[in-house]
Design a protein around this nucleic acid. Structure first.
Lengths: 333, 333
DNA sequence: CTGAAAGCGCTAACAA
DNA sequence: TTGTTAGCGCTTTCAG
């Protein structure tokens, strides 16, 4: 492969000059520049990014750490990140953390050794010290969903509590008289926020009871189990707000298995708005987060920071919206 | 951050010696080594991977190019690749190609400039010249599903035609009297192989007709449309073999929408065995590819090649297996 | 067994 | 405007 030296030699200039035309900085005579570009073409020269990285401490690579790429929510997010990164001339490294703190830490360490330009992380185990470490090493960071309390880094998240309220209100507006909640893991802020939203709206009704809240682990299986336990305790539940779409799908499945009609006997509303919610029959009503937009915005922001524009801190809360579909009754209009 | 120089100075040895203990090659006095390691601890020194990469032409990074990470088949594959890479001390760059040839080419170019150690690609547009280019640059390559005719690189794939035959036979064994096929894009080898398998088995029956084959574009929407057109032409179809699970899900959905009972009136069998097939009601019968295993094996092989073990060529065909579930009737046993 | 020194390919002062 | 040169941090001959 041709190196910058080859180009310089063939163009009869120094490597510095070639570097200048390559990076478009410093003064270069028009004609000289033309000649250099010409040679670059002839030799089909491409700068070596590793050498450049060593010299610059910039590698044109971003990293995204997320719990599990198989989770449709995260794969949609990942897609948004990669698209945006590509458009900006960056390449991206993916890391599955399974929400394991030590794994995240070890990734962060490796990424630092590799001079990664910036990190996007969707984590619930990230600690303040990790953020501090990343900041100390001057690695731009953006956190999805969760930000350390002190606002020491940028955060992008959806309005979770707000969405939950919308969900419960919608269920009630469409005729439900007793709405239960299948909750995500307490360890996750997003799950807690959604639970909070549920409590806020449902708590005002006389039928409300703490036992209407059942954990479902954010998984399809969890959703199935939760709905069974719930109906055993409260056979009269006629509305279910699931903390995410996977659990909603599990709930739908379990209900169908039990011979309970959705939405005639029980309505369901999920949360997230992953594509899959259109694949069930009936299709799932859900509170849609702007997943792609969230990934794209986070990445744009990160790139801006890498390039030295943009503040190191920022908190962006994205709006969610109700998508009414088959698992809830038509509005009483 | 501490550099190898700092370590050398503090340990009172040369950088060469530190490098030797770091890489465990060359002779190093036991005691000297101990001291060096001690200092490494004290300084919490971590080698700079970029510098190492420049010197070695090895970056500890693999890349995987696939059509779309949002497709559950590929996200499961991606997960397998990342897990295996991590276990081997590698980091992985993901690229979404959308099966666009030019995009793949530009990725390959960038990856070369970044001294990526090896590439895994699931592509249907990869041309012989691309493979040649990669080979010329000594980048280990493994192809999933499709290999260029001349066997110029390693290929990992499932037994597609074989699986298709299993599917059709299963449908017939469980009582279907007229089995249609929703086919994937002709451009894709996997789709062609599955179609071939279908033809081979179905073609032997008197009811067989070319118009029982309908394209469904490997997508949920495509599956829906295909099933509608199919039933219009052949109202007596009672078995559907979909070329992949997404189309099978679409088919199931469309049938349910039309009020047709699955599997009582029409049976369905998919292909791939993605997790989602357990999320429908009834659950989907499918021909499962060992997706995770395929990704893991491909990655293991790639890593072996990067390390200089393993032959540059290899063709591995993995077995598929029928998973019978709710969308086909119980066997007539 | 250890060290000096020449790269790997590019960037960025500093001179000219 | 352009060239010289000293790094960036690590590996690897080649001597000793």
């Amino acid at each position: 492969m041709a190196t910058i030296r080859d180009v310089a030699a063939r163009a009869g200039v120094s490597v510095a000059t070639v570097s200048r035309v390559l990076n478009g900085n410093g003064y270069v005579n028009k004609e000289t520049a033309r000649r250099v570009r010409q040679v670059i073409q002839e030799l089909n020269y491409r700068p070596n990014m590793v050498a450049r990285g060593l010299a610059n401490r910039k590698t044109g690579t971003l990293a995204v750490i997320l719990p599990d790429i198989k989770n449709p929510f995260f794969s949609e997010l990942a897609r948004a990140v990669e698209d945006t990164a590509r458009a900006g001339g960056f390449t991206v490294i993916f890391c599955n953390s399974d929400d394991l703190g030590p794994r995240e830490k070890s990734y962060i360490e490796v990424l630092r050794q590799k001079y990664i330009d910036g990190i996007i992380i969707a984590s619930n185990t990230l600690e303040e010290e990790d953020v501090a470490y990343i900041n100390d090493n001057d690695i731009p960071l953006v956190v999805l969903d969760r930000g350390p309390g002190d606002g020491s880094c940028a955060v992008f998240r959806a309005k979770n509590a707000d969405g939950a309220k919308k969900a419960v209100r919608h269920l009630i507006d469409t005729g439900c008289r007793k709405v239960a909640h299948i909750a995500g893991p307490e360890a996750l802020v997003t799950a807690r926020e959604r639970l909070k939203g549920y409590r806020e709206v449902a708590g005002a009704f006389s039928w409300f009871d703490e036992s209407l809240i059942e954990p479902g682990h954010f998984s399809v299986e969890g959703g199935k189990g939760a709905v069974r336990r719930l109906l055993e305790r409260h056979p009269d539940v006629d509305g279910i707000f699931a903390g995410n779409d996977l659990m909603a799908i599990g709930a739908l499945k379990a209900l169908q298995r039990m011979g309970i009609k959705v939405p005639d006997q029980v309505s369901i509303c999920g949360f997230d708005g992953v594509e899959m919610t259109e694949w069930t029959e009936p299709e799932l009503t859900t509170i849609a987060q702007p997943i792609y937009e969230m990934g794209a915005k986070a990445t744009h922001y990160l790139i801006d920071r890498v390039r030295g524009r943009a503040e190191p801190k920022a908190v962006v809360e994205l709006d969610v919206r109700l998508i009414q579909r088959g698992t809830t009754r038509r509005g009483t209009d």
